[in-house]
Computed example of a mutant assay.
Amino acid sequence: GTVNDIFLAMCGGALRRYLLSQDALPDQPLVAQVPVSLRSADQAGDGGNAITTVQVSLGTHIAEPLKRLAAIQDSMKGVKSRLGDMQKSEIDVYTVLTNVPLSLGQVTGLSGRVSPMFNLVISNVPGPKDPLYLNGAEMLASYPVSLVLHGYALNITVVSYKDSLEFGVIGCRDTLPHIQRFLDYFEESLVELES
Rank of each mutant, 00 (worst) to 15 (best):
G1W: 10
L8A: 07
C11K: 00
A14P: 00
L15C: 07
R16E: 02
S21R: 14
S21G: 15
D23I: 08
A24V: 09
L25H: 05
P26T: 12
P26R: 07
L30Y: 04
V34G: 05
V34T: 08
V34C: 04
P35Q: 08
V36N: 03
S37Y: 10
S37V: 10
S37K: 13
L38P: 03
Q43A: 15
A44L: 12
A44W: 03
A44V: 11
A44D: 08
G45A: 14
D46S: 12
N49A: 12
T52S: 08
T53H: 05
T53A: 06
V56H: 06
S57P: 08
G59V: 09
I62N: 08
P65R: 03
K67G: 06
R68I: 05
A71I: 07
I72F: 03
D74M: 11
S75W: 05
S75F: 09
S75C: 11
S75V: 09
M76A: 09
G78H: 06
K80C: 02
S81D: 12
R82K: 14
L83G: 07
L83M: 14
D85H: 13
Q87P: 03
K88M: 07
K88R: 14
S89C: 08
E90G: 01
Y94H: 09
T95C: 02
T95W: 04
V96D: 02
T98H: 01
N99K: 10
P101M: 01
P101F: 04
P101V: 02
Q106W: 09
Q106G: 11
V107C: 12
S111Y: 05
R113I: 10
V114Y: 03
S115T: 14
S115L: 12
S115W: 09
M117D: 11
F118C: 07
N119T: 10
V121D: 00
I122K: 06
N124M: 06
V125D: 02
P126I: 01
G127T: 09
G127D: 06
K129N: 08
D130P: 05
L132G: 08
L132I: 13
L132H: 07
L134N: 09
N135S: 13
M139S: 10
L140M: 12
A141D: 14
A141T: 13
A141Q: 13
S146N: 14
H150C: 07
G151E: 04
G151F: 01
Y152V: 03
V158R: 02
Y161Q: 05
Y161G: 04
D163S: 15
L165T: 07
I170D: 00
C172R: 00
R173T: 13
D174Q: 13
T175D: 14
L176Y: 03
P177R: 10
H178M: 13
H178R: 15
Q180E: 15
Q180D: 15
Y185D: 06
F186C: 07
E188S: 14
L193K: 11
S195F: 11
